[in-house]
């Protein structure tokens, strides 16, 4: 088929770019509110901040339909297996934002009850600082994630898809592939 037979304009491009573009513009977060940060996450989705601008207002109640888990709040030892289960239920490709210092590092609660950083349980893509992060910070984290999706690999396999057996001393941290919030690309 020769080009002069075409009656329409066309563009060429790489399929990967389109896949990235599509993914970037439709990241659906799972509602995974834990503590204080969940309120700010809801505030980010509500009138004043309006996450819908980024194609993200569709908070999915089922992890099966979600692409992004925003770990909003402190993760207790009792919650950790549940969190991992929710993460495992999500379909690839999936991303994780660790929202707030408690989720990122345990924060001020350096004690027996709190997991010192959710990256010990699930691989984290973006850490959002703050206690709690204001909705602006969350949006910055989301935009950082968008940038990461836009420039990242289309096909990505997480290392160690199966969690280690129970009783073997907890979850082993996976190799972090995270960027710091505000890191220039």
């Amino acid at each position: 088929m020769a080009l002069e037979d075409l009656h329409h304009n066309f563009l060429t491009g790489r399929l990967e770019d389109m896949v990235r573009w599509a993914r970037r513009a439709s990241v659906w977060p799972a509602t995974f509110g834990l503590a204080c940060c969940a309120i700010e996450m809801m505030a980010a989705g509500a009138a004043d901040y309006d996450l819908a601008r980024y194609g993200m207002e569709v908070f999915r109640n089922s992890p099966r339909q979600a692409d992004l888990m925003i770990v909003a709040g402190r993760v207790s030892q009792k919650m950790a297996p549940v969190l991992r289960q929710v993460y495992d239920q999500m379909m690839e490709p999936k991303w994780v934002i660790s929202m707030g210092v408690c989720a990122s590092s345990g924060g001020m609660f350096n004690n027996y009850a709190i997991v010192q950083g959710v990256d010990q349980i699930v691989p984290v893509d973006v850490y959002a600082p703050g206690c709690p992060p204001s909705p602006e910070t969350l949006m910055h984290a989301i935009l950082t994630l968008h940038e990461q999706i836009r420039t990242g690999e289309v096909l990505r396999r997480r290392g160690g898809a199966t969690p280690p057996a129970a009783g073997s001393g907890g979850w082993t941290p996976e190799v972090p592939v995270a960027v710091r919030l505000g890191t220039p690309t």
């Binding site: 207790s76 001020m108 004690n111 027996y112 709190i114 206690c131």
Partner: peptide
């Protein structure tokens, strides 16, 4: 319940009274 157990009562014992309000506010 207990999925958000933060151990604040234990942490509160290690913080001074000045810092205590930071703990309970959460």
């Amino acid at each position: 319940i207990g999925y958000l157990h933060t151990g604040m009562e234990k942490t509160g014992e290690t913080l001074s009274y000045v810092q205590g309000a930071t703990n309970v506010t959460r």
